Computed example of a mutant assay.
Amino acid sequence: TVMNLLVHYFDENEIEEGGKVNCNIVVGKPELSEEDKANLKEQAMEQYKEEQLREIRRQNQPKATTPKHTATAPKAGEEINVQPNLFGDDF
C-alpha cells in the first residue's frame, strides 16, 4: 500500500500541495489554587514517607541464608574412593 502511494506520488505530474491551514495554537499552564498546591504537597509527603518506610523494612528483613558447602580435600596418602552417580546421591 505504501509503495503504491509513493509510486503514485512520483508518477503524477500535477500533485497540488495543501494550502495554508487556518488554525491557532495556544499553550498555557494550568493555574493551581493554593488549596490544590497544599493537597499536592501533602500527597507528595505521604508518598515519600511510604517509600522510606518500605526501604527501611526491606533493609531490616532477615536475609535468607543459604547453607555453604565446604569441600574437604583428602589427606595426603588417603585413597580417593568416589563412584560417580548420574542420578545424584539418592539412589
Rank of each mutant, 00 (worst) to 15 (best):
K63A: 04
G18M: 13
G88F: 03
P62L: 11
R54S: 01
G18A: 15
E17T: 06
T70G: 07
M3I: 09
H8T: 13
F91C: 01
V26K: 07
K41R: 15
Q43E: 10
D89F: 03
I80G: 07
L40G: 03
E12K: 01
M45Q: 14
P62V: 02
P67G: 09
R54L: 00
T65E: 15
N81S: 11
N39C: 05
A73D: 11
E46S: 04
K49D: 05
N22M: 08
T66E: 12
I25Y: 07
C23M: 11
E14W: 05
Q61A: 15
Q59C: 03
G18I: 14
N39R: 08
V21W: 00
M45Y: 05
N13D: 15
G88D: 03
E16N: 02
A71V: 14
C23A: 09
N39I: 07
K29P: 00
D36L: 06
G77P: 01
A73M: 14
G19A: 04
T1G: 13
L40D: 02
Q43Y: 09
D90Q: 08
V27T: 09
M3E: 08
E31Y: 06
A44L: 11
K63L: 13
V2L: 14
T66S: 06
A76N: 06
E42I: 02
N4K: 07
E46A: 04
L53E: 02
F87D: 05
T1C: 08
I56A: 02
I80A: 00
E17N: 14
R54K: 07
T70W: 14
N81F: 11
E35V: 04
P84D: 00
A71W: 12
K37R: 12
A64P: 01
L6G: 11
I15H: 05
Q47R: 06
Q83W: 05
A44M: 07
F91I: 00
E34C: 09
K29L: 07
G28H: 13
N22Q: 13
Y9E: 07
T65N: 12
K75V: 12
G28R: 15
D11Y: 15
Q52L: 01
E79L: 10
I25E: 09
V26F: 08
L5V: 04
L32E: 10
V82R: 03
I56S: 00
F91Q: 08
I15M: 00
Q61N: 05
H8I: 05
G77I: 06
Y9M: 12
P67L: 15
Q59D: 08
V7F: 14
Q59S: 03
V2H: 02
G18L: 15
Q83H: 05
T65R: 13
P74A: 03
G88T: 06
Y9C: 08
I15Q: 04
V21N: 01
N60E: 14
E12Y: 06
A38C: 01
P62A: 09
F10M: 08
A76F: 07
E17A: 11
E35A: 10
E12I: 03
Q52N: 00
K29A: 12
T65K: 13
V2C: 07
L6C: 10
I56V: 10
N60S: 06
Y48E: 09
T72K: 13
T65S: 09
P62G: 04
D36C: 02
N81L: 08
D11W: 12
K63Q: 15
L5M: 07
S33K: 00
D11K: 14
T70K: 13
E34G: 09
N39H: 09
L53S: 01
N22A: 11
E17W: 12
Q83E: 10
E51A: 04
L53F: 04
R58A: 13
P67N: 12
K41S: 13
